[in-house]
Design a protein around this nucleic acid. Structure first.
Ligand SMILES: [Zn+2]
Ligand SMILES: [Zn+2]
Ligand SMILES: [Zn+2]
Ligand SMILES: [Zn+2]
Ligand SMILES: [Zn+2]
Ligand SMILES: [Zn+2]
Length: 373
DNA sequence: GAGTTTGAAACT
DNA sequence: CAGTTTCAAACTC
């Protein structure tokens, strides 16, 4: 009778939160159609002729299309792949580690998964729960939602870290070194959110919001409180200085004009700020479908327009790889000097505190990984 | 489809 | 913590 040991697995949380998570419902309850309607990704099509191709939407696991807006969504059968909606493809993790997207999402693997030696199945519930528990014990936020949709509360981050409410933006932020946060390698980008102070990315060019912009916004708001006399922009983040090319070489923009562009999209696949740059034919990028893209109507309380051309968004997130970007050729091996991420954020915050203290006291020097906070 | 690149997760 | 290894996805060709 083994007993007590494994039984106490679920002490205070008999109902794991992942059972409530939308993902769980999505996988287990909602039909793919339903789910895809709520979280679609629009595929771009440049041609706007009458016979424009039917809109295609992709969910994390499948693609759908419909003849027109009056038709129902139907699953797209990809040729060759048989089952197009494959999920995880784990080969060595047994789907019992966070490497596995299914496991990480708090859902069991299902048929479309292509995993090998999968233990993430109801049959092995014990193992799954035990493992979850174990991982959770190490990192209580391991299974917490990765992104928080804060439409406009940068400040929350700056709130007193010591007594941050439970809603602590646990977002761990990314740690990108080579992708410039321009591809789905970056979790921030993939989630459709801009980088934040939690990120330790280098050369951030996240189309949803660059880290430096975020930091600037914080500084700005911070200064509001305290400023009054500070007028000269002492120095922006190191990156801002270092990346004059990415930003406008000589930007006439006042340094305090940045507004964070965290759009309140609630979907997993969000569209980055559109750009006229690539649109050869002007802004041919038109909402392909009213009902679905309605979220972004032209009436924005905030000027969502990117601060400036700084943010060039190449394409729309879709099943097609993000190629057009190419802002900085990743090939260039050494793009970044031997800096460490910490210096970046540290520098901006505490950079040169000679006399003037325009630092944000609220901002923790190192919020990075502090699950408990 | 095979092979490469990437950064989170895991490990030490 | 930091440095290294492992891992599966994103990406490229
Ligand atoms: Zn898996
Ligand atoms: Zn799976
Ligand atoms: Zn599996
Ligand atoms: Zn990133
Ligand atoms: Zn980031
Ligand atoms: Zn970034």
């Amino acid at each position: 009778m083994d007993n007590s040991q494994k039984k106490k697995i679920e002490t205070p949380t008999p109902k794991s939160k992942f059972e409530d998570s939308p993902v769980f419902n999505y996988i287990n309850n909602l039909s793919p159609i339903e789910a895809v309607r709520s979280i679609p990704t629009v595929q771009t099509f440049n041609t706007l002729s009458f016979t424009s191709p039917p809109p295609v939407f992709t969910s994390p696991h499948a693609s759908f299309h419909r003849e027109s807006r009056f038709f129902r969504w139907r699953k797209v059968e990809e040729p060759g792949e048989g089952d197009s909606c494959k999920r995880c493809n784990c080969k060595k993790s047994k789907c019992l580690k966070l490497y596995c997207e299914c496991f990480a999402a708090g859902v069991y693997c299902i048929e479309p998964c292509s995993c090998v030696d999968c233990f993430n199945r109801p049959i092995h519930e014990d193992t799954v729960l035990a493992t979850r528990k174990q991982i959770e014990s190490r990192n209580p936020l391991a299974f917490a939602p990765k992104v928080i949709r804060n439409s406009d509360s940068i400040m929350e981050t700056t709130d007193d870290a010591s007594k941050t409410p439970a809603s602590a933006r646990h977002k761990r932020g990314c740690n990108c070194k080579k992708s410039n946060c321009l591809k789905k390698y970056c979790e921030c980008f993939q989630s459709g959110v801009g980088c934040s102070i939690n990120c330790r990315c280098e050369g951030c060019k996240n189309a949803f919001g660059k880290k430096d912009a975020y930091l600037l916004a914080i500084m700005e708001s911070k200064q509001e409180e305290d400023l009054s006399k500070v007028q000269q922009n002492p120095n922006l983040s190191k990156e801002v200085e270092q990346n004059p090319s990415s930003d406008q070489p000589s930007t006439p923009l006042p340094p305090y004009r940045h507004t964070v562009v965290h759009q309140p999209f609630l979907s997993k696949n969000r569209l980055p700020p559109t750009q006229f740059f690539l649109g050869a034919g002007s802004s041919s990028f038109r909402k392909p479908d009213g009902d679905l893209t309605q979220a972004r109507n032209e009436k924005k309380p905030l000027q969502t327009v990117a601060e400036d051309k700084t943010e060039i968004m190449p394409e729309i997130l879709s099943n097609t790889p993000i190629t057009t970007i190419k802002a900085i050729s990743p090939n260039s091996k050494r793009v970044s000097p031997p800096h460490i991420g910490s210096s970046e954020s540290g520098s901006i915050l505490g950079k040169r505190t000679n006399g003037r203290k325009l630092i944000l006291r609220s901002i923790p020097a190192f919020p990075s990984l502090n699950p408990n906070q």
